[in-house]
Nucleic acid binder design. Structure first.
Lengths: 122, 122
DNA sequence: ACTACATATGCACAATTGTTCATATGTTCA
DNA sequence: TGAACATATGAACAATTGTGCATATGTAGT
């Protein structure tokens, strides 16, 4: 900031603090990691999926019970469980006709709690 | 689970473990809190916004520097900064023509770090 | 007042997403 | 094998979202 940093044109954007820009670019994550990270938060950034996850904090549950507890269709729940499964947030076991889902990640509860801290501070 | 729980029809969904369903419903968050929480994670569930936030870990930055650092248009960055501002994740100060943005939340860095833990475990 | 520049914003549009509906799959029991 | 039931899945659709484009706003210097 105290250095002599001339304005330079790069693709129509004016760089004011080239020093900072370079530091940021060097500190940036690998694109793949970034997309995974964003994808993870996108998964828990949906009311239905948060409801499912917090329901599973209480107990492992089968699909129709989750549907009943959330007053939603079996299909909707099933679709969302697939998303959560792909994100490795839930796992399942089959017992006859019934499939029981449960949490597959220790971080999720902590992360949701920290999210709550944020919105409480408003 | 060990109790006698008959199947009951509620709106086309079969309840198998009524006990569990009731426990979950009682433990459920207020709808408003839930929506806020989901909204918060949705905000950090986007690659561009994560890039902006991690850039601000390094230093406060003006809009055009962020645009240059991320190789994106000023408009795109400005739109996303508005989202981050509304979510109280960034704050800004004006210095002449230039507006400097910086982080406005302590939790974000911790939450992003925990998100990274999750995806590393795969 | 006028120009230059940094940033913000409204509109439009393509892309993504969550749910419903219909149906397929898989399992149990008779 | 066939009926009943739990779950999964594909297609369709409305709603939401991220970005580009054009332009407005705000500030500084002349």
């Amino acid at each position: 900031m105290s250095q002599n940093e001339p304005n330079i044109e790069i693709c129509e954007t004016t760089v004011i603090h080239q020093n900072t820009v370079e530091k940021v670019q060097k500190a940036s994550m690998a694109e793949e990691t970034l997309l995974e990270l964003a994808g993870f938060f996108k998964v828990i950034g949906d009311p239905t999926r948060i409801k499912i996850l917090t329901a599973l904090f209480v107990s492992e549950m089968c699909v129709c019970d989750i549907a009943a507890a959330l007053s939603m269709s079996q299909s909707a729940i099933s679709h969302q469980l697939r998303v959560l499964k792909q994100a490795k947030l839930v796992k399942f076991r089959r017992d006859g006709k019934v499939v029981y889902y449960s949490l597959d990640d220790d971080h999720v509860e902590a992360i949701l709690r920290q999210g709550l801290e944020h919105i409480k501070e408003n």
